[in-house]
Structures are given as structure tokens and as C-alpha cells.
Design a binder for these strands. Structure first.
Lengths: 233, 233
DNA sequence: CTTTAATGTCTCAAAATGCGACAATAATCG
DNA sequence: CGATTATTGTCGCATTTTGAGACATTAAAG
């Protein structure tokens, strides 16, 4: 077991979360930068000895974003023996004056269970923890270099999103309560990384019977004002 | 850490494998029965301290089935704090005279990474390990009661199979090198748990361009002899 | 008032799908 | 040995889904 701030955690087990938001025209994820290291990482954490794995991830997510009840899905567990580079972790520990023996367990090998979350960009107030300078949004197609195998984790998260876009993923978690058809289409296009035909997309979405149409908005933009939609539930 | 037969394993981390085969007209999975306990479980194991998680699972699979290079896919990690019922494990340890302190670590909480495998029923020679009486096939729709949350693990494996049947799953791993269209259709029907229209299924499969048609077989059965097919690769 | 560009909808062709029907075939049985 | 029977491969047809362009509508900009 390992201790951190007096709390006991399972050794060798961690989680990392790929937290997706949608802003402007692009998918973003939350990244943390550690003090004085220029090392970027996915927000992650450890599992307390009597805590459900899923609860641990929700706890960490709430601490980082202030959000409860977000859409959260486990997608893969990364367990290569060599995935933990002790050099990087040493640098982080030293920069934070955490070099004493009581936290040496953090340098051990860790198997990490990876989760993806879909959240509304605007509802979030990212909060860095004690050992990180920042916790901010980065464009998924323009990430800084990440520690360990975190780039691979992000790639796998994206693949999971793509493969599940048709069925299971509640895309509305990424959008405002009300949104235009163009915004919805843009989310699909960014996740699938391909452009879709406007007419066909609109017809398909409306035929699914999952959208409620509201009055037209007067959004101040030029040209014909679009309807607003929301997801039925 | 924990030791077993002089080998060191990561504590708190295990894997379980749902090994699918297709025989007669049904999906089957491999289950183990522990000595003198009437307890059934999925074949599983532990991860050595310097071993990749995926390698550990392949090692265990080879030991149980004698097979190398099988299709293997990680599908979920089960991490509830209460998923390990010490009563069941105690019973198993006692029945095997393993009650001494050196294996008490097995009674700890374990997070288990679950894998599914697709293998050819006929190529397998299931081998029980030291603490199990048997390692044999059971019809997926008629399983004995399983320990811990293993029934849940099987259900999730089946759901994963269903959701991936269209895209990613190499179904041919379940079949002989050559097979009839009726056999292939039966595999789909069993996994999807619904009957399919014969003509449409044949047309669809042939249109995919992934099948090679061979000469007709003389299978000794009555009626018109069907073509044999194999998957292109 | 005209221009411009985004929006909602429609039409048409092409493709995919559901479902039944038909002829061909090979073992079985009278 | 010929008729029966059940299975197979294929086809036809109606229906549904999809891809792509076209049109009128609309609201801001010039």
C-alpha cells in the first residue's frame, strides 16, 4: 500500500481520465502541467483501499472539474510493465519536494485504468491540484508532448468515441442544453474526422426522433436564423 | 507483493478470461471447478511483477488451452471494493491445503482486468491447474453458478461480442478453416440472439468480399451439398 | 432595396435491406 | 429406380436508407 496525505491507496493501480469538451469548432481535453517541469499529463489518481474503482474516478473528476454526474466510461486498462518511466516521475517529485521515502511507492510500476468523460465545456472550472501549475483545455489535434503513454491513451479514447458514436455515446453532454443542427453536425464531424452532407445529416437526426425542436433563435448572426434543438430524455 | 510457487506477483491485480468456443449449435465458454468445493470460476490468474498485463493473460491462456496466438481482447476492468468474497476464496484455499500465511494475500481485494478470447473448439485441450478438478466447456446459456462477480463478467463479455460483431471481431476464430454458410449464419444468430433471414445473410456476406468459396463438400448429410467457404486474409 | 450566405426542405438516383419464391441437388424411401 | 423431401444458391420485388444536388426562405450586411 501507499500513503498520500495520510490516506491509504492501492499500490500498482492508478486511473487516468480523458476529459472531452467541445468549444469553438473543436474537441478539447483537459491536461495538467506539473510545477517547474514542463511535463503534461492526463488528470489521474489513485484508488483508496476500500473504494470502488469507479467511485475513485468520479471523486477525482469532481475535484478537477467541480462536476458531479458526468458521463463517464471506462475504455481500456494499460498494463505494460515498462509504461512507467521513473525518470519523469522523479522529476515531478523532486520539483515538488516530495523526494522522501514515504512517497517512493509512486515510482513503482502502475497499471492504469483509463476513462473518458464527456462534459459541457462551459460548466467547468478546471482546478489544478497541489503538484500542478495548471489544468486547462487543449485542442485534441494540437496536444503538447505528454508523459509516459498518455498520448496513446488519448488516441485510444478517440478511437473509442468514434466507434461508439452511432450507438451509445450521449453526445449532448458536450453541448449546451439547446443547440443548432449545425453545432450538432460539427460535433459529429470532429469526432469522425470527416465532413458530412448537411441535408442528409439533418434528415437522419430528425428521423431518429430524439430531438425536440424549439423556436428559432435570434442569435445576432447573419443570415437565416436556425431552429434550436434539445435532446429528449 | 504476493508469492506463489516462488514467483512474485502484483498484489491487488488479477485477470479473468472469458474463452469462447462454438460447438454443435451453441456458444460455449471454459470454466474451472475447484477441488472439493463445487465452486465454478472463469480461468484467471495474476500478473508477475515485471510482466506486461497482456503477456500475463496470454501466458495463462496458453497454459489452459495449449493455444498460442489466439484472438484476445480486453473488454473491461472490474474494480468494486466488495467484489472479492473472502468466504469463497477461503473455502478454495482450505480445500487445497493452502491455508498458510504465505498465500493470505490472495484473500485481499483484487481488481480484475477481463479479457475475451475466441478460439476453435476443436484445437483445444483444456487443462485444469493444480487447484481445479476440471476445465471444461459450458453452454453460455446454461452456466453453473459462478463465484464472485463472474456471471456479470460473462454477461459483459457477451454484450461486447454483440456490439462488435459488425466491425472488429474475427468470427472465423470460432470456426474451422472451412465452413458452410449455414454454420457462419448460426454463429451470428447465437451471438446476436436472434434469427436472420437466410437469403439476406448470404447476400450480405458474399457482398463483403471477405469470403473465398471452395468446391462443394460431400458431407454425407442429406440434401443438396453446400459450398465451403473460408475467410480471406 | 439588393446582395449574400445560412437554413429547412425536397427530389431523384443509387444502394441496402427484408422477405418470399424458384430451380437445383442429393440422400432417403417406397 | 423413380418419387419424395429437405437444404442450398439465387433471384425478384417492394421497402427503406443513403448520397447529393437544388430550391425557396430568411435575416443581416452593404
Amino acid at each position: 500500500m501507499g500513503f498520500l496525505n495520510g490516506i491509504e491507496y492501492l499500490d500498482h493501480l492508478a486511473y487516468d481520465s480523458v476529459i472531452f469538451g467541445f468549444a469553438g469548432d473543436n474537441l478539447k481535453i483537459l491536461l495538467m502541467e506539473y510545477h517547474d517541469t514542463a511535463l503534461f499529463a492526463l488528470p489521474g489518481g489513485f484508488v483508496q483501499v476500500d473504494e470502488d474503482l469507479n467511485d475513485a474516478v468520479r471523486r477525482g473528476l469532481a475535484e478537477r472539474t467541480g462536476l458531479q454526474n458526468v458521463y463517464l466510461e471506462q475504455f481500456y486498462t494499460f498494463g505494460d510493465a515498462k509504461r512507467n518511466l521513473t525518470g519523469e516521475m522523479n522529476k515531478i517529485l523532486n520539483a515538488n519536494n516530495l523526494g522522501d521515502d514515504s512517497v517512493k511507492w509512486i515510482l513503482n510500476r502502475f497499471v492504469s485504468v483509463a476513462y473518458l468523460a464527456l462534459i459541457n465545456y462551459k460548466n467547468v472550472n478546471p482546478r489544478p491540484d497541489e503538484i500542478s501549475d495548471s489544468c486547462t483545455w487543449y485542442d485534441v489535434n494540437n496536444l503538447p508532448p505528454l508523459i509516459q503513454d498518455h498520448t496513446l491513451i488519448v488516441e485510444k479514447a478517440l478511437m473509442t468515441l468514434q466507434s461508439q458514436l452511432d450507438h451509445k455515446i450521449p453526445i449532448f453532454e458536450l453541448l449546451e442544453e439547446q443547440f443548432t443542427m449545425a453545432e450538432l453536425q460539427r460535433v459529429y464531424e470532429v469526432i469522425l474526422n470527416e465532413s458530412l452532407h448537411r441535408g442528409s445529416f439533418q434528415r437522419k437526426m430528425l428521423s431518429l426522433g430524439i430531438l425536440k425542436r424549439h423556436e428559432k433563435q435570434f442569435n445576432g448572426g447573419a443570415h437565416k436564423a436556425p431552429y434550436l434543438y434539445s435532446f429528449l430524455k
